[in-house]
Amino acid sequence: MTMPADLETDAARLRETMAKALTEGGVLADPGWRAAVERVPRHRFVPGFYLPADEPDGQGLTVWEPVTAELDHGRWLAAAYSDTTLITQFDGAEPDWKNPQVRHGGAPTSSSTLPSLVVRMWADADVKEGHTALEIGTGTGYSTALACELLGSADVTSIEVDPHRLQQAAGALYACGYTPTLAVADGLYGYWPEATFDRIVAACSFRAVPPALLAQTRPGGKILLTLSGWLYGYARVLLTVGENGTAVGRLLPGTVSFMSARTHAAPAFGNPAHWAAGLPETGRAARHSPQRITAATEEAFHLRFLAQCAAPDAQMTTVGDVVHLVDVVTGSAATLAPTGGRWEVREGGPVKLWERIERVLSAYDEAGRPGPETFTLHFCDGGQHLRHPRLPGLPLPRP
């Protein structure tokens, strides 16, 4: 299909409109980043993507509709310049964009992150002209292009674990005149050939701060990454790197989540009914409802991360009305079921999973329900610890 002759004119107009909206929303306070948003042609980096349909299918699965210029030029261009995350891959399998199919469900494994979050990440990391930067997770290359606009291509390195993703991003970047250093590499290990960096920004999440990133950041440099885990609790942290592999930084406010680094993804745990079958027949009244960490609220988002710190190897799923916790590392399990206006918990194995989480929830309440920005993450002696002046230290998974 031949593109309309006025494509670039329309795209420039939409970029200007998007930049204006982001500025009015307080996202583009820095004129350098606004200029980058106005110049980078996002549509060149997203030739095909998926958008969710208005309604799920009969089984409750999200219906993902493919969007390309050939299928619907207007919808494609409008979405490219909307402040929306565009899913470009599911389950690690590259779509056939010449003949894309509607999808039902699936786990997104690559995307073009919404522009406001992309800019927010670079800005929160205090990236400024003159810095050298490592981006972990090239994705479509749009974020990389923004960094190149501000810093210059020579000072930008971007790595991606998926070779096909990187190949497509490289083609789009080079076609637009950007020439950063690109490499297929696992973000867990950074990229030694270009170290050291002034700033490292990760567009994926990790269970623990990778030591290689600390070693590849100059003292006084900063690392912005998202910590997550198998309960899908998230927290962003901006670390300032010290000497001898140490770092400290505060958690940042907000409810931002990123896909897990593939090496840190949760393992399969089988059938929750099999785990529940080995639990005691009778339980106890739960001191806290599981809804405290599952509700669609900002506090629950924060609490899920704290709960994850207490039980870092636990996973959670809900079957009917019953919440299941499963720990494949220790062989522990727990269920929470609504019974007569309360929740009954049954636990088995060497780790009492819900009891651990309850202790953290109770301590959080007693401390006055402090927000994420009051917590600090300390990385020292090869481990990481979440600390708060009114709460006991919470050890996170070791890197």
Rank of each mutant, 00 (worst) to 15 (best):
D365E: 15
D57E: 08
K98H: 14
P47L: 05
L239K: 04
G242M: 06
A286P: 03
E135F: 00
L71W: 00
R44A: 13
V319P: 00
H164D: 10
G60F: 08
Q384A: 03
V102A: 10
T318V: 13
H131C: 12
V161H: 04
M18R: 02
V184S: 04
G130K: 04
R103W: 06
E347S: 07
V27I: 15
G139H: 08
V360L: 05
W97V: 10
R15A: 09
A247V: 13
T157Y: 07
A107R: 14
T374L: 11
P392Q: 02
N271V: 06
A185I: 01
S260Q: 14
D313Y: 03
H324Y: 15
V237R: 06
A215R: 08
K222V: 02
T179L: 11
S158Y: 09
G190T: 06
A36T: 12
V351R: 13
V40L: 02
S289W: 12
V328D: 12
V329T: 13
Y178K: 03
L225F: 13
V184I: 07
A266G: 12
L188K: 13
R387M: 09
A277M: 01
E8K: 05
D72G: 03
A367V: 08
H388Y: 12
I136W: 02
A172D: 07
A107L: 14
P4V: 02
K222Q: 15
I87P: 00
